[in-house]
Design a protein around this nucleic acid. Structure first.
Lengths: 200, 200
DNA sequence: CTGTCAAGAACGATCGTTCGTTTTACGATG
DNA sequence: CATCGTAAAACGAACGATCGTTCTTGACAG
C-alpha cells in the first residue's frame, strides 16, 4: 500500500496553503474559486479534498496563519530588555511591520480576516484570542515604561496599552488604504505627542 | 403613461438601500444573495434591476454611504472653536463614534468596506478620497493645537494628525473584535501619554 | 494482490441576471 | 367625469454560468 511519507503529506498541505494564500491575496476569499486554488497548486480536485474538508476550513487555516504572523511580529519586538523608551519600542515595531504593508504582506489579508471574523464565530474566537494576547503585550510594555518612570505614576497600564496597540492597526490601515505616511514620519508624530507641553 | 413621482422613485431606491444595509450587516456582502436583499425590501427581482445595474453597483453604493457616514461623524467634531485640548477633542470624537461599534453601527460594515476596497478599484479610490479628507481634518486639529502651544513648536502637524487619526480605526478595531475598552478608559490612556514625564 | 492516493468527470445547488408578461398610473379624448 | 390607450414600472419564471463537493476510476507503492 502506498503509504506516503509524513513529510510528503505535510509538504502537500503547505503547497495548498501557499497557493491559497497567493490566490486569496490576489482576489479575496470569496472571489477565488476552489478551481483557482487547485490550479495554482497544480493539483486535482480530489487531491485537495484529501487535505482539507472544505473551503471554509482552508480559509480558516489561512486566516489563522495570517493573524498568527501578525502576532509573532509583535512578540519579537517585545523580547527586548531593558525596556527602551516608548518611541524606540514603537520604532522597532513599525519597522518590523513595515514590509508587511505591500500587496504581498500580511496586512492586506488581515483586513479580509477582520471582515470574515464578523461572520465566522470560530474565526472570531481565534482572532479574539490572538489579539487579546497582543494587546496584553502592549499592556506589559506600558507597565515597563511606568516602572521606568516614563509614564505618570497614576496611569492605567491597560489604558495606555490599548492606545499603543490601537496605533498599529490604525497605522496599517493608513498605509494600506492611503499609502501614507512612512514609519519615521509617523514616529515623529508620536514623539511630538509624548513631548506635549503640560498645558493639556 | 405612468411617470411616477420623482419622490416615489427616490423612496424606492432608498428602500432597497435600507434592505441591503440590513442584509449586508447581517451576513456580509458576499454571503447575501440578491434574493435576500430583494425579499427584505419586499420587491421583485425585476423591480430591483430597474434601480441598480448590478449587485456590485449596490455594494458600492452601500459602501460609499458607510464610509461617508464615518467621515461625517468626524466632520461634526472638528466644527468646534476655539480648539479645546487634545484630550477633549478625542473625547468628543470617541463619544460620537461610540454608538457605531455595535452590530448595527457603521464600523462592523466599515471592516467589510476596507476589505472590499482591496479588490474594487473604484471603491478604493472613493475610500482613499474620503479618508484622505478625514486625515486632513486631524492634521488641522494638530495645527490648531500647535498654534495654541499644546504641541512642540517643531512638531510636524501631518505626522501628529496621522497618529491621532490612527487611534480611531485602531480603537474601532479593538471594540469590534475584542469588545474593549470603553471610551473613557481609552481616553485615560491618551491622557497618560500626553502627560508623560520628559524622560523619553 | 491490497489498500492508499490522485485524478477529474459529473452533480446538485445556487448564484446573478435577463426577458417576456402583467399591472399600474397618467394624459388625452369625448 | 368616465373611458381608454399607452408607456413606465413591477413581476417572477427561466437561464446559463459557476460554485463547492462527491464519487467512480485507475495508478502505483508495499
Amino acid at each position: 500500500m502506498p503509504r506516503v511519507s509524513e513529510a510528503h503529506l505535510a509538504a502537500r498541505r503547505q503547497q495548498i496553503l501557499d497557493a491559497a494564500r497567493a490566490c486569496f491575496a490576489r482576489n479575496g476569499f470569496h472571489a477565488t474559486s476552489m478551481q483557482d486554488v487547485i490550479s495554482e497548486a497544480g493539483l486535482s480536485v480530489g487531491a485537495f479534498y484529501r487535505y482539507f474538508k472544505s473551503k471554509e476550513e482552508l480559509v480558516t487555516a489561512i486566516a489563522e496563519q495570517v493573524i498568527g504572523r501578525v502576532s509573532d511580529l509583535l512578540d519579537e519586538v517585545r523580547a527586548v530588555d531593558p525596556p527602551p523608551p516608548i518611541e524606540d519600542v514603537m520604532r522597532r515595531l513599525l519597522q518590523t511591520v513595515d514590509p508587511q504593508f505591500g500587496p504581498d504582506g500580511v496586512f492586506p489579508m488581515a483586513l479580509q480576516v477582520w471582515a470574515e471574523s464578523l461572520r465566522n464565530p470560530d474565526l472570531a474566537e481565534f482572532v479574539r484570542g490572538i489579539y487579546g494576547r497582543v494587546r496584553g503585550h502592549f499592556v506589559e510594555i506600558a507597565r515597563d515604561q511606568q516602572a521606568a518612570g516614563r509614564l505618570p505614576a497614576d496611569a492605567d497600564p491597560e489604558a495606555v496599552g490599548a492606545v499603543l496597540f490601537s496605533m498599529i492597526p490604525g497605522y496599517a490601515l493608513q498605509r494600506v488604504l492611503l499609502g501614507h505616511p512612512d514609519p519615521e514620519t509617523f514616529l515623529s508624530g508620536i514623539t511630538a505627542l509624548l513631548h506635549a507641553p503640560d498645558k493639556n
